[in-house]
């Protein structure tokens, strides 16, 4: 214990005038490597796969990968907000299912509701679940892991209660467009992913709210002392993550052409994986949404590539697991923190 106290304080060379400058330059280089390393890794992966399979780089396959990535990508963007705020949301898979079922129930039957009603309901359900998470975490001081673990179970249970355990098929054409439509040959889910990415990139990089998320995640006590309404920020963050889970639920329901009560199981883990591969720190306050996008794309490409190479899906899980751990191992920011 004596040996390990405050290594951080001792190892970080104190920044005098000159050494401080070079240190920060080194820091800047490391941040640079870190930010773009993931992109380089992604493209190397693509080059490797295109050499192994001629089918990989065809437009059809690329669109396929993007569509497969879209739901995880959207969930991962919500998860990025949560993890940046030093939290975790284990409930997104269940919330996705609940939103999907509620939307499906409105978009089916003899006289289905218009698609926008179903969509609003789905998003609303997701938002509501997220707000509950946020309130329980910020007002009642329940740790995020526990609160969202509770929501994971509650939302899944509500899904089965609401659907009586049965799938809800026969959805209206206008609703199915969400999952199956195309705009200029681009699948609608991919467009949703792109739009979500752009919106939340702006939120995190350009708005006061985005700044507050980083501040609350980096050090909640400091943020509070600085006059930031930390509880409101947390409620908003979980609310948004829930709403994005709702959006994922809508898209998944439309793609599978039915509301499935068992949908989205363990999706939260893929979302967390994308965020972690993308370089966001589980300690909060450090990370980018671009990293998350590429994290999600890497997962999508690996799944697709291994499919193309004829590797069984059992092995795919092993590979994905190894990549998650390696991504964190190779993270230079992490090393300097130790």
């Amino acid at each position: 214990m004596i040996t390990n106290t405050s290594n951080a304080a001792l190892t970080a060379p104190s920044a005098g005038s000159e050494s401080g400058q070079s240190l920060s330059r080194r820091q800047a280089t490391m941040t640079y490597v870190h930010q773009y390393g993931i992109i380089v890794a992604f493209f190397l992966l693509c080059v490797g796969l295109s050499l192994s399979s001629e089918y990989f780089l065809t437009p059809k396959n690329i669109i396929n990968v993007l569509r497969q990535t879209s739901i995880n990508g959207i969930l991962a963007i919500g998860m990025t907000l949560v993890i940046l705020a030093r939290g975790i949301d284990l409930s997104v898979g269940s919330v996705l299912a609940l939103s999907g079922i509620v939307a499906a129930s409105l978009a089916t039957g003899e006289t289905p509701q218009p698609a926008y009603v179903a969509i609003a309901a789905g998003l609303g359900v997701g938002l509501a679940c997220g707000l509950v998470n946020g309130l329980v975490i910020s007002r009642l001081s329940v740790p995020p892991f526990v609160a969202t673990l509770g929501m994971l179970s509650v939302a899944r249970g509500l899904t089965y209660i609401y659907s009586e355990g049965m799938p809800i098929p026969d959805l209206s054409q206008s609703f199915l467009w969400l999952g199956q439509g195309r705009i200029w040959q681009i699948p609608v889910p991919v467009i949703f992913l792109a739009a979500t990415f752009i919106i939340f990139w702006v939120v995190l990089n350009k708005t006061v709210f985005g700044r507050y998320i980083y501040a609350v995640g980096g050090n909640e006590r400091s943020a509070r002392t600085a006059g930031i309404g930390t509880k409101k920020v947390l409620v908003a963050v979980y609310g948004l993550a829930g709403m994005l889970a709702g959006l994922g639920g809508l898209i998944l329901t439309a793609r599978t052409t039915a509301g499935l009560p068992q949908a989205g199981q363990s999706y939260e883990l893929d979302a967390i994986a994308a965020v972690v591969i993308g370089g966001t720190s589980l300690n909060g306050g450090v990370g980018t949404i671009r990293g998350t996008l590429f994290g999600a794309l890497i997962i999508g490409v690996i799944n697709n590539g291994l499919d193309l190479l004829g590797v069984s899906s059992f092995y795919q899980q092993v590979v994905k697991g190894c990549i998650i751990v390696c991504a964190v191992l190779l993270d230079p920011a992490r090393r300097s923190r130790d």
Partner: peptide, 28 residues
């Protein structure tokens, strides 16, 4: 522990309490 947000930059740390003044419609 309760003053700075260590991983954030000098700019972000200084601006933190003045962003209301330094923003329009929520944009910095």
């Amino acid at each position: 522990a309760s003053g700075l947000v260590l991983p954030l930059s000098v700019t972000e740390n200084i601006a933190m309490s003045s962003l209301d003044r330094w923003s329009t419609a929520g944009f910095v």
